[in-house]
């Protein structure tokens, strides 16, 4: 379990669908995350704000709930937990906008020391995956569990 300041999150028996609440100046914003299976052991991680009134999920708006760090830590923890339950899974993360990709990059960089002990992280650059390096701009990310992950 990653030792991060994060929100509590809930999931169902499939361990593919997750929900948590962001709490801040804008009130309570429900966040939805899902691991969608693309092919055997390859999953896409999608994540956004839930608008219950319109049954919409949006990953382009900026929530402005003054809790970006906590939300990113929660997302990191969800992916970490998922890889415990699905140890052979490869998780692909694409950002919805360049700014969002950049935000993920900063988040991964910030927690890289802790994350990299248990998870291999790759960044996509010029259509090639490479081991994640700080201060490098990537187009997408991929995570998989290290063999000795507890």
């Amino acid at each position: 379990m990653l030792n991060l300041n994060k929100y509590p999150y809930i999931t169902n028996q499939s361990f593919l669908d997750f929900e948590f609440d962001s709490i801040g100046p804008k009130g309570i914003v429900k966040k939805i995350a899902r691991f969608s299976e693309l092919s055997k052991n390859i999953y896409n991680f999608g994540f956004g704000d839930f608008d219950g009134e319109h049954n919409c999920i949006n990953d382009t708006i900026v929530t402005n709930n003054d809790d970006t760090e906590k939300v990113l830590a929660t997302v990191a923890s969800i992916i970490h937990d998922f890889l415990k339950v699905y140890p052979n899974a490869i998780v692909v993360v694409e950002g919805s906008t360049p700014a969002r990709v950049r935000r993920y990059q900063i988040g991964i960089s910030k927690y890289f020391q802790e994350i990299s002990r248990v998870i291999q992280v790759f960044g996509l650059k010029n259509d090639c995956w490479e081991s994640f390096k700080k201060n490098t701009n990537y187009e997408a990310f991929l995570a998989r569990r290290k063999l000795d992950m507890k």
């Binding site: 379990m1 999150y9 809930i10 499939s14 593919l16 929900e19 939805i32 899902r34 969608s36 969800i78």
Partner: peptide, 17 residues
Amino acid sequence: TDAVIDENVPNYEQHPF
């Protein structure tokens, strides 16, 4: 894991997003 199982969490597989 740190996750709490709650059967009220829907399956979002078919959600357009």
